[in-house]
Design a protein around this nucleic acid. Sequence first.
DNA 1: GGAATAGTGTCTATGAGACAGTATGAA
DNA 2: TTCATACTGTCTCATAGACACTATTCC
Lengths: 218, 218
Amino acid sequence: MIVTVDAVLLTLHEQVLKVVLHTRPKGAKEPFPGMLALPGGYVHEDSDEDTNETVVRTLLRKTGIVSPYLEQLYTFTGRERDPRDWSCSIAYYALVNCDELLESAKGVELYPVDDLPKLAFDHNKIVDYAVSRVRNKSNYSPLPCFLLPKQFTLTELQRTYELVLQKKEQKPNFRRKMQDEWQIVEEVPGVFKKVRGPEAQVYRLKPERALEVFERGL
Amino acid sequence: MIVTVDAVLLTLHEQVLKVVLHTRPKGAKEPFPGMLALPGGYVHEDSDEDTNETVVRTLLRKTGIVSPYLEQLYTFTGRERDPRDWSCSIAYYALVNCDELLESAKGVELYPVDDLPKLAFDHNKIVDYAVSRVRNKSNYSPLPCFLLPKQFTLTELQRTYELVLQKKEQKPNFRRKMQDEWQIVEEVPGVFKKVRGPEAQVYRLKPERALEVFERGL
DNA sequence: GGAATAGTGTCTATGAGACAGTATGAA
DNA sequence: TTCATACTGTCTCATAGACACTATTCC
């Protein structure tokens, strides 16, 4: 029995939702040599208190970051998924801002989730499941906020939601939901951003409120 | 590393949501002797294709039934949860009709989920998590239908929802949701049931529709 | 002035929730 | 006749979604 942890680390890069993958070594010992796979690893029974620590440790080692949002996705098991033995992979998913990711992990490889090549093990299935979970949760939760940097304009936030959900939102309705209904953002006083027209107010996430909205929608 | 599967088998017994537990043997070899615990067991690597088969096999052996609704809940891991070793439990939850359960498993022990004694391992946490998942999902899905027998009246269905969700529903609104919105029930032509006043139409679940409503709310 | 962007006001259709009402059968 | 239960009709208020509008900056 092989027990591992796998992480689906998602980010928004050049207007596309992408996943962090790495190329498996070509050595003959490991299965699926040279193929793309999710970052993951074995549980360290002496140092890991639980698999949450395993995945945090794995992501820190492979990307150098501590993801602000990390959640267990599903546990994939079976005799066929690993050619070596009956195996069990506890899969997690995480969302990070692309700039922060690229800063701390220079050599990281990103691949669009909607156009993936064949991956090692059943990792295509795991990515698809993570993406559908994220898209579904984004309908009623502040999940996409974790794809943005610490500070952002409401237009950038809306664009993020639109890219994740793959559908247009109406500006007034979107702002009303974020500000009045959910109340998950607050102005950064006196900070503005200008692209083309007038200055846009810069906002940041209200972490306590965001968590509350999460709990409600579980 | 110990890898097991645990099942939270829920049913409605005497108007109360209850969970199936068994008493652990008093032999000195196993941990938590004499304490109540969830039914569960080890993966049989030679016969089980995946843990889904493990849990189906376990429930069949301990209760004699094949649950119509069975879903992976969460994977609980850690060094402290089993005194013997670092352990990993893939937890599932299932919903069954009480009469069918008691018929095929005469000696089964049921305990109210809202008033549990101290259980073995972290099984209190697992039950609580399963119950909150079920209560949450019952708000927007046909989950409670699986607690009823094959045929039922709409009043019985409403009573089931009310017991799971612990709140009253308005009869007209409830019927509208089941019949017009979700369309998950259909009349059993010519079959009626009478308790006190006029005859009540008997219904059955439309399994395809129920699954659709499930998918939508994922 | 025109194009692009920020931000606000308001209408309407839909739907959830609440109440009221009618019908049936048994004590 | 009264009570409990089955079942239906309809009103209202909250909300989501859509459109319209003004203001600001740069070309």
